[in-house]
Nucleic acid binder design. Sequence first.
DNA 1: AGAGGTATTGATTTTCATTCTCATTACGGA
DNA 2: TCCGTAATGAGAATGAAAATCAATACCTCT
Lengths: 154, 154
Amino acid sequence: MPAPSEVAQRAHRRLSDYLSRHGLKQTRQRDAILESFLDTDGHITSEELYERVRREHPEMGSATVYRTLKLFCEAGIANAHHFRDGVTLYEREGHHHEHLICTDCGAIVEFESELVEQEQDRVAKSRGFDLVGHRHILYGVCVRSDCPRRPEAP
Amino acid sequence: MPAPSEVAQRAHRRLSDYLSRHGLKQTRQRDAILESFLDTDGHITSEELYERVRREHPEMGSATVYRTLKLFCEAGIANAHHFRDGVTLYEREGHHHEHLICTDCGAIVEFESELVEQEQDRVAKSRGFDLVGHRHILYGVCVRSDCPRRPEAP
DNA sequence: AGAGGTATTGATTTTCATTCTCATTACGGA
DNA sequence: TCCGTAATGAGAATGAAAATCAATACCTCT
């Protein structure tokens, strides 16, 4: 296996912290799932991750992956998205960014904007809120010539 | 039939247009559902709307409401949201706004920002997208001691 | 107005992601 | 190593949304 990146190490540490701080246990499954998850770019569903983990650990149950991904969110290692109904997409917590989604082909492009960031703080504050997170999604039609039409709306 | 507001009339017209333009039919169910839907403030699930419509039209089927709400979205009368997984919330299309949600009490406050609006256009364009819509959600904790459960616009 | 072709409906079933249940197993502190 | 408890895996349960399908309602044409 490749050298443990700095980011990966941080994630492992964060999980350990969270577990011990909450009287939970460190298990081989949680480690395995974290390993696979960290090895992922972009977004992934629980089911997809399950398939991946399964290749290395055939005895793994899908319910465990669901449970663990939820745990990761609570531990600040992952983030859950509900871009479309019926599926939860997870991605690594870290460099935070927003999403630009093609309503035709479903392509997801990431972006960030310091300007929007500041404006969000301003708005939340003015409404008497302590901002703890946000989600900013743009829907558009991408110019890709191959954009294979696939149904999905906001 | 109550006084037809300007907004309601526009919605009815938009539905008629969409139907005829797509070779679809005008039915009493669609009218009834639109009526109830327009009578709604804030967000509503298909199931909730079904219950409401049902009071006036006991013969209505829930599948019809699902289908119709989807139709409304395509016709530009409604918008679908997936704030949490597993449920689709619909709201009237119209004055467009973003949402600020309290993670503690679930209160939903609406806001808009011209500045963010412009920035969105800029970002989408720079990525080769034709912007057709967006969703901007802020999550925070409202600092009021009574944390009012009031999904209302300012 | 009447007929016919098709979209629509309502009841029901099906799908499918996610959660729950529970007996069994694995952690981890003492 | 022992024990109490959290965790796991398999399968059942849940629930929103979609799909089926026979019966019905619309609409267009005559």
